[in-house]
């Protein structure tokens, strides 16, 4: 079993300062701490070649979990095993199996050519010459490293730096790749480029992908499974499509009318089960529950009141679903 977490828990001790100078002094003399449970009995299993999004709002415990999985942080409780290795006890053995991209950090040396950073990684991971050459050829081809490999990391654009960082994390053929905000700060086309590279690694090398991201498009494009964590607890762990359909009972139709539709809007308010929104004078969005109405019923209802010019149906996508989970509008039981 590649990745197993059982009842994984992390409790941080945080210094509790009383406000003001007096509080700061008091803390020096008699320090007090409060305990914060960052990760609370988290359990999951991830198989080889899976692509999993591990998501949650800020401070939910995502990064803390990743740090425990990479052996950087010591778990307060529970067990972890990655490719049969306990990442904390045997950090070095675990590090050989995993690659990590932290979008906000770089593993390139700032002041030396990118190529030299790569050669350093070759030494560190003890990559055989032939394998190194092969990978570098591949990365030059698909990541376009060739165009900037002789430059120092300082002089790369963010997009180039991220591509180089992704390549750096894959140089030693890791079985597991952790991506922490891999597309943060990139523009749309570069994001798309990054995602394509990650997908390719997952598809062609069977690299297990574990992704945390606030960019929901990343999740939609990269991951087949979504684990949602909030306040340190897993609140949902399902296939992405399933997550979508679980919450798909709310649909919407966007209706453009031939004439201004204020009166139509007023009339529709008589149906309290519908959620209405006037986008502009001519356009009304009607959200409804699939269990109560069909789209046809809603459209007929409006048609009785006014002439319709155009209709579009709003399908729920992962973004809306996850945004709702974050806003705790949805209770998930799974």
């Amino acid at each position: 079993m590649p990745i197993i977490a059982r009842d994984l828990t992390k409790v941080f001790k945080m210094p509790a300062h009383a406000p003001g100078i007096a509080g700061a002094l008091k803390h020096v003399v008699h320090p007090q701490y409060t305990e914060k449970v960052a990760v609370d009995h988290v359990s999951f299993e991830i198989h080889d070649g899976e692509s999993v999004a591990y998501i949650g709002p800020n401070g939910a415990g995502k990064s803390t979990t990743i740090k425990m999985l990479t052996g950087i942080l010591h778990a307060s409780g529970g067990e972890i095993e990655i490719q049969g290795v306990n990442p904390y006890k045997d950090r070095i053995a675990n590090a050989r199996n995993v690659g990590v991209v932290f979008g906000q950090r770089t593993q390139l040396w700032w002041d030396i050519p990118v190529e030299e950073s790569f050669r350093l990684l070759k030494d560190i991971y003890e990559i055989p010459d032939a394998r190194y050459k092969e990978n570098m050829e591949l990365f030059k081809e698909v990541f376009g490293l060739g165009e900037f490999i002789t430059r120092t990391a300082r002089r790369l654009s963010l997009g180039q730096r991220m591509r180089a960082d992704l390549a750096a994390s894959l140089l030693h053929d890791p079985k597991v790749l952790y991506l922490d905000e891999p597309t943060i700060g990139l523009d749309v086309t570069v994001k798309e480029n990054m995602r394509e590279l990650i997908r390719m690694m997952n598809r062609e090398r069977g690299t297990t992908i574990i992704l945390t991201s606030h960019d929901l498009q990343d999740i939609e494009d990269l991951c087949r499974r979504v684990i949602v964590i909030d306040q340190g607890r897993i609140i949902s762990d399902v296939e992405r499509e399933q997550l979508q359909s679980m919450f798909a009972h709310e649909r919407g139709v966007r209706i453009s009318l031939k004439k201004p539709g204020r009166d139509v809007y007023q009339k529709l308010l008589e149906h309290p089960e519908l959620r209405l929104e006037m986008e502009d004078a001519h356009t009304i969005t009607v959200m409804f529950d699939l269990h109560i109405h069909t789209a046809y019923e809603v459209i007929s209802l409006v048609e009785e009141l006014a002439d319709i010019r155009d209709i579009s149906v709003i399908e729920p996508d992962i973004k809306q679903v996850i945004e709702k989970i974050y806003r705790s509008e949805l209770q998930v039981n799974s």
């Binding site: 740090k67 990479t70 052996g71 950087i72 070095i92 053995a93 590090a95 050989r96 950090r105 593993q107």
Partner: peptide, 13 residues
Amino acid sequence: EGSIIMDLIKPIS
């Protein structure tokens, strides 16, 4: 600054 994690994720002492 926290960049020590970039060393800790590598198989090195």
